[in-house]
Design a protein around this nucleic acid. Structure first.
Lengths: 213, 213
DNA sequence: TTGCAAATGTGAGGATAATTCATATTTTTA
DNA sequence: TAAAAATATGAATTATCCTCACATTTGCAA
């Protein structure tokens, strides 16, 4: 339709690392680069984000961009990493104090709502996680994130059911977490009403598994 | 690392359609193109698949490729569509005759095993569904496929629980299906042993929801 | 059979966007 | 304050997708 080239990154390997900004000046510029990238992703999606545009909007040259990010995916990865760090802290806090079934029910339910709200409200995060599977580094980040989050859940389960097989609890927690992300991705890709129903159904199923009937 | 350009397709729109092959000769060539694409995806992934390579391996010119496929995504889409058609038929057959809880348990369990086996054995399908989220047309195909598959499941549930709210059954079936795909994607991205455990856990959770305790 | 229109085939070249690199400037260090 | 390190720049290079003007083959009616 448009005389458009549509190249895709060739490989799955991480690009060569770049120097981290050590001076105040460059740290600020890197922040501007990330902010620009984030804004562009929010507007058009990460796929349509152009490196030249990121540089322009950040008020730096294209060369400066590559001074700190080895390639386009590295910018996206950096944004993703910030999100995961932030949400992990939030999840850890929500689950840390849980010591009984009712507490778990309440905390998990709230967590799902918060997560769903984030998915609905954060176009950048949504876009990045959508494209996750096509990029090895991102896939690994997401997997690590999921494992970390599941771990918090596992810890709670071990407290609630000390006699259960720990490995089974880990599997359950990991699966529930991952299925939750799938449910939310699905929920935001259909209409709001059906999405809400799907999330509610997920919550019910997960809770049945976590705290029983 | 490599002096590599890594353009990504700019837009989310379907490209202009191309003529369908009407002569024997061109039908055969289109088959060769799809076979070549499939082989290349199996070897390197769809992202690394080069249009020039597809043409070369199929023994046609790059121009011929574009005679029948408006763009790169269209080839991938065509492969995906074949898979979905095939698997839908298989799923429909497996669920068509189910009329009681025990039958559902057996059929669903078998279906999961088959699906998991397919995921493990079909690198092409796996790759395509992985990249699904980044491409609007593929996302829609997958969603439609998922809905269609869920529909078979819904039909069974309606037979088993005539008095239940139909909308709730639909939501449940859709969610279970989608979470199953998520579980399998997860399962194949971790080690085989953990993957097996995850699929087994999913199966147990899904069955609990479908046929009760 | 012949001739023409439709279908198909071809590959050099246009277009876009990622990434590099030689060089210039600024900051830090000694 | 001079040398070293860090940072900044953007024109040029590269890789790929995709188009297009033109060549060839096929189907079919006269």
């Amino acid at each position: 339709m448009e005389g458009t080239a549509a190249p895709g990154s060739r490989n799955e390997q991480a690009a060569s690392p770049r120097r981290a900004p050590s001076q105040q000046r460059s740290r600020e510029r890197v922040e501007r680069m990330l902010a620009a990238a984030s804004a562009l992703i929010a507007e058009q999606g990460s796929d349509a984000m152009r490196m030249g545009e990121v540089a322009e909007r950040a008020g730096v040259s294209i060369g400066s961009l590559y001074q700190f990010f080895p390639d386009k995916r590295a910018i996206i990865w950096a944004l993703a990493e910030r999100y995961t760090a932030e949400s992990q802290a939030c999840i850890a806090a929500a689950l840390a104090e849980v010591n009984d079934a009712e507490g778990l029910r309440r905390a998990f339910s709230e967590l799902v709502d918060i997560y769903y709200g984030m998915f609905l409200a954060e176009p950048v995060m949504r876009d990045i996680w959508s494209g996750t599977q096509a990029d090895k580094a991102l896939r690994e980040l997401e997997l690590a994130d999921s494992r970390a989050n599941a771990e918090f859940l596992t810890a709670v389960l071990k407290r609630l059911r000390p006699s259960a097989d720990p490995e089974a609890l880990e599997t359950t927690a990991f699966l529930i977490w991952q299925m939750g992300e799938a449910a939310m991705r699905l929920a935001i890709s259909v209409g709001r009403q059906e999405g809400d129903r799907l999330v509610a159904a997920y919550k019910r199923m997960a809770l049945r598994e976590l705290v029983g009937e």
